[in-house]
Design a protein around this nucleic acid. Structure first.
Lengths: 241, 241
DNA sequence: ACGGATTTGTTCGTATGTATA
DNA sequence: CTATACATACGAACAAATCCG
């Protein structure tokens, strides 16, 4: 056998499989031929095919199930048109999944330096802090930290329901009109990655937001840590001449 | 000494230092007191201070120089108001840095399956491929892959200058009016991370864009891999009721 | 409840091309 | 040029999970 490594064979296999998916020969959810069979069809060894499948699984194109088979992924990647401010609850519903919430902490705490800067606080003002994990079909999707200046809330305020935006509107008469968002990423966070059941090689997408009410006062500072294998953000960018 | 481990002491130290920076007591570029001196001021051991400094360095808040001192970082983080479509050249200039480009490859190649999908190509149509590293003050900032359908370009087209948007406009009479962008992240890419001189623990921010001309035809498919310690994206999000 | 068939997961051995010192 | 390490490719055997009669 004469080899030609200018482009490795498994990359060709990846291209072939992706093409089959794009052309509809393989449809989302459909099972691929078994590895031995598929290897014959593609004229490569089972190992080479497996190397291609390994990468495609990493890219979330396929899902492999031990003892059952390999399937084309249903593109479940959450994706928001980010210019529109929506709640995470809505984002999950929009994908046809069921949103859930694990509340990890609620209470009034001293503000950090970032909080003071972003929410224009006094050092003496407390903030109402909520830490939650939001799930889609029981799977953890995003870790949320929300902070609200205590003086904007009535004494016994507690978050009700799942959506912070809705709860603030209905229970605290605070209407959020826009937010300034900052999108960043970190590789691994020993606490948060664990909570989201993320491997160390899956980075986290961070959405750091300051929300403003109708009078342009900052009322909610939130940090959302998304599993980056589940989420991407869309933006429509207009050219300004 | 009675200890209180509900929150570790170095976290308090981090807060104190960040507060000093936010309040202007420590200005960007300024040198911090020496570690021994600073430790006395903050009433912690030098070890505790060093743990705090280690984390602040990781967060790009300070820079430590062996034998010289510790300095407040100049917040050189590139940050784009992403709804506005600008060239990377402009983005770098806006930060007051000098843009540079290392061209790694230009030429006509067969399209991949993604290219065919995004640019609505035939399998037979070639694409003009450009791979570049864009630098700011000589430091690599972003790895760019740009693809243009060959049939949109005249025979001898070559990219001139630094900005793809400008070159397309002036040399190929193609005017880009908007783009659909997708923001993702990956943890490590053995080829690209190396080119950008990224450690394995610095993830890459990916801006995947399809650019359209005035007649809504897709004309440019580009992938930008940013060093995530240098870049974040801003978005202004409006609430839609 | 059991066993056999199917399928993916794991590991070994061998060989060849590529890159580096 | 040689030596070495590494990536790529193939084949084969067995383990583990699943399904079905």
């Amino acid at each position: 056998m004469d080899y030609n490594y200018q482009t490795p064979r498994y990359l060709h296999v990846i291209e072939q499989i992706k093409t089959k998916i794009n052309e509809g020969e393989l449809e989302p959810g459909e099972r691929l031929p078994s590895e031995t069979e598929f290897a014959k069809v593609l004229h490569v060894s089972r190992n080479t095919l497996r190397e291609a499948l390994r990468i495609l699984e990493e890219e979330n194109v396929i899902i492999r199930k031990h003892g059952i088979g390999t399937f084309v992924n249903k593109k479940p990647v959450f994706s928001g048109g980010i210019e529109e401010l929506f709640s995470i609850t809505d984002m999950i519903k929009r994908e046809g999944k069921t949103p859930g919430t694990d509340v990890l902490f609620t209470g009034y705490v001293d503000p950090h330096s970032d909080d003071i800067t972003e929410l224009l606080l006094d050092k003496t003002e407390k903030v109402y802090l909520v830490k939650r994990v939001r799930t889609a079909d029981q799977e953890p999707l995003v870790y949320c930290i929300d902070k609200i200046p205590a003086n904007l809330l009535s004494e016994g305020y507690e978050l009700h329901g799942e959506s912070m935006l809705t709860s603030l509107h209905e229970d605290a008469s605070i209407t959020i009109s826009y937010a300034k968002a900052d999108i960043k990423t970190i590789g691994y966070h020993k606490e948060i990655s664990e909570i989201l059941k993320c491997d160390s090689d899956i980075p986290l997408l961070i959405l750091k937001q300051v929300h403003y009410d109708l009078a342009d006062n900052p009322v909610l500072y939130s940090l959302n840590f998304f599993r980056s294998d589940q989420v991407s953000f869309n933006v429509f960018r207009k050219r300004i001449f």
